[in-house]
Computed example of a mutant assay.
Amino acid sequence: MLAALTGMGLSAAAGLNAYIPFLVVALVARFTDYITLPAGYEWIESNWAIGIGAALLLAEVILDKVPVVDTVNDTIQTFIRPSMGGLIFAASTAASELDNSTWMTENPWVSVVLGVVISGLVHTGKMAARPVVNAGTVGMGAPVVSTVEDGASFGLTLIALIAPLLVIIALALLAWLLIWMWLRVRRWRRTRRDPAYDPV
């Protein structure tokens, strides 16, 4: 159960920023004994994986804070974030259950699918909300929202690794936020089509 919660938290974090949970897991596995990656996932803590991850994170942090460019980046990340969510869910679950054979370790595809779905849902909410934020703030909100998302991704990653039980609360808050943003997006789009529409 704790392994699943850790994987859920990490994959949700990947939906906000694909490279933060990847790099945190890679660095923790590389320099501590807190995470031991099993066979098939050791490459995550290799020099080249960490180097590429760091370079991509730098590009993501910069591009995601530029209006319009952030939307293009989100479109590209549609393929990357869910994939990273699936990878990191599977890796963390396999690492947590290294010494115990469970249905998740015996069926690793389940972890991958769950990671892809969770990360994809979070990414979809982020991608739908960003154009609305940009239009409503004339682009000024992009760097602010992006910084909050990066901070949330890092915080969720730490929670998933250190206190997985709190992932339940964090995911509930994230789900509420995504639903709220979705409703705001619908209201904004309806207002644009019909200026006389009164959301109240």
Rank of each mutant, 00 (worst) to 15 (best):
L2F: 06
L2E: 14
L5V: 05
G7H: 07
G9I: 00
G9Y: 05
L10V: 06
S11L: 05
A12D: 09
A13F: 00
A14M: 12
A14F: 08
G15P: 02
P21D: 04
P21A: 09
F22W: 12
V24F: 04
A26Q: 10
V28K: 13
A29L: 08
A29N: 07
F31K: 08
T32N: 13
D33M: 12
L37G: 04
A39P: 02
G40Y: 07
W43R: 05
E45M: 14
E45C: 08
S46V: 06
W48D: 07
W48C: 06
A49W: 00
I50Y: 01
G53S: 13
A55G: 10
L56T: 00
L57V: 14
A59Q: 03
A59E: 11
A59N: 03
V66M: 10
V66A: 05
V68A: 09
V68K: 10
V68H: 11
D70L: 04
D70H: 02
V72F: 15
V72S: 12
N73M: 08
D74R: 02
Q77W: 10
Q77N: 15
F79I: 07
R81C: 04
R81Q: 01
S83H: 10
M84A: 13
G86I: 05
G86V: 09
F89W: 00
A91V: 09
E97T: 06
E97H: 08
D99I: 00
D99L: 11
T102N: 11
M104Q: 13
E106H: 04
N107T: 13
N107H: 14
N107R: 02
V110W: 07
V113K: 05
S119T: 03
S119F: 09
L121H: 06
H123R: 03
G125T: 07
G125M: 02
M127G: 14
M127Q: 14
A128R: 12
A128V: 07
A128T: 02
A129Q: 00
R130L: 08
V132K: 01
V132L: 10
V132H: 09
V132N: 02
V132E: 04
N134P: 11
A135Y: 13
V138W: 13
G139W: 02
G139N: 02
M140T: 01
G141C: 12
A142S: 12
A142L: 04
P143W: 06
P143L: 06
P143T: 06
V144N: 14
V144R: 13
V144Y: 14
S146M: 01
T147Q: 13
E149Q: 13
E149R: 02
D150W: 02
G151K: 06
G151Q: 11
A152M: 15
S153F: 04
G155M: 15
G155T: 15
L158A: 15
I159L: 05
L161A: 03
A163W: 11
A163Y: 09
P164G: 05
V167D: 13
I169F: 15
A170G: 09
A170K: 05
A172Y: 07
A175E: 06
V185N: 01
R187F: 05
R192E: 06
D194M: 07
D198R: 10
V200A: 09
